[in-house]
Write a protein that binds this DNA or RNA. Structure first.
Lengths: 350, 350
DNA sequence: CCTTATAATGGTAGCGGTACCACTAATGGA
DNA sequence: TCCATTAGTGGTACCGCTACCATTATAAGG
């Protein structure tokens, strides 16, 4: 293993001083074209790359950000990360990828490690958020952007989210318009702000026509397809009378539930309407055709990446950026009108 | 923004020298328990974290590896990366994630950037591989592991792959056993070693019973679902007589093709058998039930991660590790016997 | 021709650690 | 009692780079 050449090696070989080479590395103006040319040739010859650790020692920016997600295997996160990576690449930023599996402890460890590695910023998309860790980051001047989740007190954080309450409202409204009254909710964890907000929107829509949420029709999930499957099973078997529609807090759970219904021979949409949230590509498959509330996942990633890098590159702009994107209803084929109900939004039908 | 405390701040506060603090940081033996205790308290109080750049200057290991994939959005890669991340976490290694979209140029840039950041190793899973970039890595002592792809001359590289030729053979054999004769192949890019090998295995199986591959039944794809869809369309419309079965070089393309067949009203499996390769979770959905050749993606990630870190941590072990995993046929519901053909593997049937 | 401004370069002190050597005080053996 | 040993420290020279100041060469102005 050859030792990497240093700035001194290059300087000697080119017959100049370290300073001159350093100037060229940093694109400084005051170097004669001839010297620059000669030094560049030597650099090329030795495949010289400046030692980033030596550079970083000066306390300048490191050109690295951390991205913390729950599980990259989940298409939601992989698309989000892709959006982030694409903008980072433009700015020549590298990203550290961290999976937490929703465990607060893992998240703490990752944040510590990222701090230690002196990242310029962190994008947080994981389910749990430990406010103490975040405080530590801010204290050290590390820029932070929350994406697709909120904290109780967001006042001091940059964030990018969809209007989850509105999304939940849209979903519920769609089902209500189709005449559904007994609507189940497959929930995500209750410490998750998207779940909370989607549920709030759902509840609001029901409330508007004087309907309450039946607690027996709320089934707990954790945003995974498996949990959706289990929830679907539970809903189909134990609740009587059976709900005519299900609003799942995300697409993965909606699809999981549909797996269960399919297994039990319950026809979607005619015996059971299903609506999800996220609009992951999977839902668009012909054999699924999931009606859902769309949030542009990639865009959220890209926007959060841009927000973060702007904050890093222009720290003098102190303003906090808080972006709320509008969700959109995507009607496909998993929701149908309740049999025997006229096309009215309200009223006692049946 | 507070300036981070340095080792000197801690030393002063604790009334000792830099050296002593450094010893404690590195768990050296010769420090009295009382001093250690006192210094640790000061560290805790100031939330001291050693500056990794200063540490790295000494030319020691950085605790970071790069992972280069084609597209993290592709479930194959996200599962692979997850496997890698999980073992890296155990060793407290961080990973830089890089997407290339299959572009050689992007890959070159990423490798350069990783070199600059002095990663200890790189795991390459991207479609293109630029041998010059690799040479640069090896030259600098950066450990390299190829995963799920090979080079023409692999002699000097660590790698982890499945036996793709065997997988292709298995797939073809399965279709032949069901009586298929006209079997189409939806190909990946031909510079991709998995595609090449899978095709070779496919060809071999056909050859064994005296069948050749009909060039008109080879349709070009690029491993994406969209390309599979297009290939399926082309196959269904233009080839006459239509093939009775399709072997797609990966699951994504197989599912894409099934989308096309579904759109055209071609029944899978009764009018068209489909077999894929990879065994991504999506294929196990009830509405897909794709018969496929399984390679344990997660394990390949985990094994390549372990291989890499072992190479990094024990550089004295010079041996090169080359691991070939066996593929496994997973029979689900997208392949059926050719109508009107008896249960014979060979012969002129019909 | 000398002075002064300017462009191009060299020299060197950090940045925050680690490694290694030097020193001190206490301990033990002769 | 004295010297050798050793555990526990402190001191300092790097690591490779940047920032800043000093120096030299060159050109312009009087």
């Amino acid at each position: 293993m050859k030792k990497s050449p240093t700035i001194l090696d290059i300087a000697r070989e080119a017959g100049v001083s370290k300073s001159t080479v350093s100037r060229i590395l940093n694109n400084a103006e005051n170097v004669s074209p001839r010297t620059r040319q000669r030094v560049l040739e030597v650099m090329l010859k030795y495949r010289y790359r400046p030692n980033i650790f030596a550079r970083g020692l000066g306390g300048r920016r490191t050109g690295v950000v951390g991205v913390i997600v729950t599980d990259i295997t989940n298409p939601f996160y992989s698309i989000l990360v892709r959006g982030i990576e694409d903008v980072c690449r433009v700015y020549r930023y590298n990203i550290f990828l961290c999976n937490t599996d929703g465990r607060e402890e893992e998240e703490r460890i990752h944040i510590e490690s990222l701090t230690e590695r002196r990242v310029d910023g962190v994008i947080l998309a994981s389910t749990m958020l430990n406010e103490d860790s975040l405080a530590g980051l801010l204290e050290r001047g590390v820029k932070v952007v929350l994406v697709a989740r909120l904290l109780e007190d967001n006042s001091s954080f940059n964030y990018v989210v969809v209007d989850n309450a509105m999304g939940g409202y849209l979903a519920a409204k769609h089902l209500l318009t189709l005449g559904h009254k007994r609507i189940a909710y497959i929930a995500g964890p209750w410490f998750s702000s998207p779940n909370l907000d989607r549920f709030a929107g759902f509840q609001k829509a029901l409330g508007e026509i004087g309907l309450g949420v039946d607690e027996k029709l709320i089934v707990q999930g954790d945003f995974t397809m498996e949990s959706g499957y289990l929830a679907g099973m539970k809903l189909a078997k134990s609740s009587s009378p059976r709900p005519t529609a299900v609003f799942a807090a995300n697409d993965a759970m909606a699809i999981g539930a549909m797996e269960a219904f399919s297994e039990l021979g319950i026809d979607v949409p005619h015996e059971m309407s299903v609506i999800g949230f996220d609009d992951i590509p999977l839902g668009a498959l012909r054999c699924i055709q999931l009606t859902t509330v769309s949030q542009s996942i990639y865009d959220q990633g890209a926007i959060s990446g841009r927000t973060l890098i702007e904050r890093i590159l222009e720290p003098e702009k102190e303003g906090i950026q808080q972006i709320v994107l509008p969700p959109k209803l995507v009607v496909r084929k998993t929701c149908a009108r309740v049999p025997g109900v006229e096309s009215r939004n309200e009223g006692s039908g049946s």
